[in-house]
Amino acid sequence: MGIFSFFSKEKKEKLDQGLEKTKTGLLSKISKALVGKSAVDDAFLDELEEILVTSDVGVETTLKIIDRLQKRVARDKYINSTELTALLKEEISALLDENHTGLQNSFDAAPIAKPYVMMVVGVNGVGKTTTIGKLANQFKKAGKKVVLGAADTFRAAAVEQLKIWGQRNDVMVVEHGMNTDPAAVAFDSVKAGMEQGADVIIIDTAGRLHNKVNLMNELSKIKRVMGKVIPDAPHEVLLVLDASTGQNAFEQARQFTAATEVTALALTKLDGTAKGGVVIGVADQFKVPVKYIGVGEGIDDLQLFDKHEFVDSLFKTEA
């Protein structure tokens, strides 16, 4: 069963619901593209290109997938749509190849560090604070002691927002109020978490556009000061991406990685019509695993990402 055994049936259904639109779209199109054909022809590839591009997979990654598919087909000689779907799945999964070493891979797994420090980064409005609220809930449920750090001291009422999540989860929130030095908050949060014997410390940061040099430098600094309390901290830098974001996600990943060495991705708002296909290319290019997905506004609407389930949900024949 492995690390994903905690998935309840209910949760899977939620993800399926979220991806339903994608799924039916893809499938009906694939079968349509295949009607009366016995080989991959240009018309089918055009169709596939459209499917992938309209899922925000991007031109480059789409061409890569198509290229790999063509090579596989030439080699394996596919016959029907089921086999083709399987091939497609394999090729997309291959791009999502995860590398979870050194990361806390599930909420209830034995800690790889105590406290395990996570820093959450991303552009404005992707859902960082909400994701933290949901993460805190999951870790708490798994019996971990959680401390949150309100280092978004910039956006109006951001501290307030995190505090509400803290209350909902009944976990401690370290804060210095608004317009204070975020690095100092991060430092104190890690310190307080250590003193309190926390298992997991999660630091919220202000949303920032990745092309603002000063703000990115600030982020590097926030990260650095955590290392002064615990040498390896943060153990995880989580970049939150909005599923509705297009090709700009690449630049986001590039710049946030440059500033903070992102180790994992969270993909939010997958319960909408957006397909989040851009993570396929992002994960591939930056060799960063997608770790969490957000599938709703409720406190439980966060799941560990599993590429097989993700891709399966995309291609499943029946809901």
Binding site: D56, D242, T273, K275
Partner: peptide, 15 residues
């Protein structure tokens, strides 16, 4: 609407 929105912009705007 977020300027960074991808392909889904059409669906959302239309809805």
């Amino acid at each position: 609407v977020d300027a960074m929105t991808g392909q889904d912009a059409v669906n959302t705007a239309k809805a």
